[in-house]
């Protein structure tokens, strides 16, 4: 995937950087990502699609509309492949999407909307959904395996409370895990059903934060898993992701709710981890040094 800085994208479109920012505000297109330094990064595919549309367009709105239509074709072709049970064609469709977007945006703008659309059209009990959900889970796992190794000194444990891969939340959870891994976070994903031995897993992984994801398992099962995890790791922040009615059912004061979108959830997670690390810095200050030591000093006072 090739990215362009604002000045490069503006040069390709033959406009000023200010004009490009004005288009982003008015049309929401091209939609940049942000670099670690918060600078705009445009995907070359989007800028090139817009440039081509502008050549023959009569207005910027119509050019943006045409460029968007061209990009939306990826979703249509993926839906077509999945409802035809053609794995190779589905792989090719997502590869075509990747030619124009980053992995994250391909997942958020093509793969997940495709699954939502198939679930809406054919229901969750249908064969097309079964095929599509299985293909998506497989693709997301492959993408996670191909992600670069963790670079941040941050790890999380994800307690998967979804039913199975046919659960409509499952692809979103896999996408969230993929995004976290791509952000350099070390992720250990476990079913929230498995309580026995969780202490060893947590001791080995040493997470900074626990995420309970999915809404299928009942509260008491999830609470048992979370209790066992915190018993092993000590008090640490817990976040819930795609758990229906989570605000009313979760009583823990240390629980944060992540937004339903995988990208936004990853962003919020990083903010929570930054906040917990800030809290660790404060508690590790000389004034707090006399306090009792613990295995993970950063986590002992982290609460949200």
């Amino acid at each position: 995937m090739r990215y362009l800085k604002t000045s490069e994208a503006a040069a390709l479109l033959n406009v000023s950087p200010n004009t490009l920012r004005a288009w982003e505000r008015r049309f929401g297109f091209p939609k940049p990502q942000r670099s670690p330094g918060k600078h705009r990064l445009f995907t070359h595919g989007e800028v090139a699609a817009l440039r081509d549309a502008l050549q023959e367009g009569l207005s910027i709105s119509s050019a943006v509309s045409r460029a968007r239509e061209g990009l939306a074709a990826d979703t249509s072709s993926l839906i077509g492949a999945l409802v035809s049970y053609e794995r190779e064609r589905a792989d090719a469709a997502i590869e075509a999407a990747l030619a124009l977007r980053s992995v994250d945006r391909s997942v958020e703008e093509v793969l997940l909307p495709t699954l939502d659309e198939i679930a809406r059209r054919y229901t969750l009990e249908s064969a097309p959904w079964a095929f599509a959900a299985h293909w998506a889970a497989d693709w997301l796992r492959r993408a996670t395996r191909l992600a670069p190794p963790p670079v941040r000194p941050v790890s999380i444990v994800v307690g998967d409370a979804s039913r199975d891969e046919l659960d409509p939340d499952a692809p979103h959870i896999r996408a969230f895990e993929l995004f976290c891994v791509r952000a350099g976070i070390k992720v250990l994903s476990l079913s929230a059903r498995g309580v026995a031995g969780i202490g060893d897993a947590v001791a080995l992984h040493r997470p900074n934060l626990i995420v309970v994801a999915g809404g299928y398992l009942p509260d008491d099962a999830v609470a048992r898993w979370a209790y066992a995890t915190r018993l092993a790791a000590g008090a640490m922040p817990i976040a819930v992701y795609r758990r229906t009615g989570q605000r009313t059912r979760v009583r823990s004061t240390g629980t944060s709710v992540l937004p339903p979108g995988a990208g936004e959830a990853r962003q919020r997670l990083l903010e929570l981890i930054d906040a917990s690390q800030l809290a660790r810095t404060l508690t590790d200050s000389p004034a707090a040094a006399g306090e009792a030591d613990s295995d993970r000093p950063g986590m002992r006072s982290a609460s949200f």
């Binding site: 033959n14 200010n18 008015r26």
Partner: peptide, 13 residues
């Protein structure tokens, strides 16, 4: 001559 975007408002061709 090759630029198609208005330099005044930036929102029109």
């Amino acid at each position: 001559a090759h630029a198609r975007v208005c330099e005044s408002c930036g929102l029109g061709l």
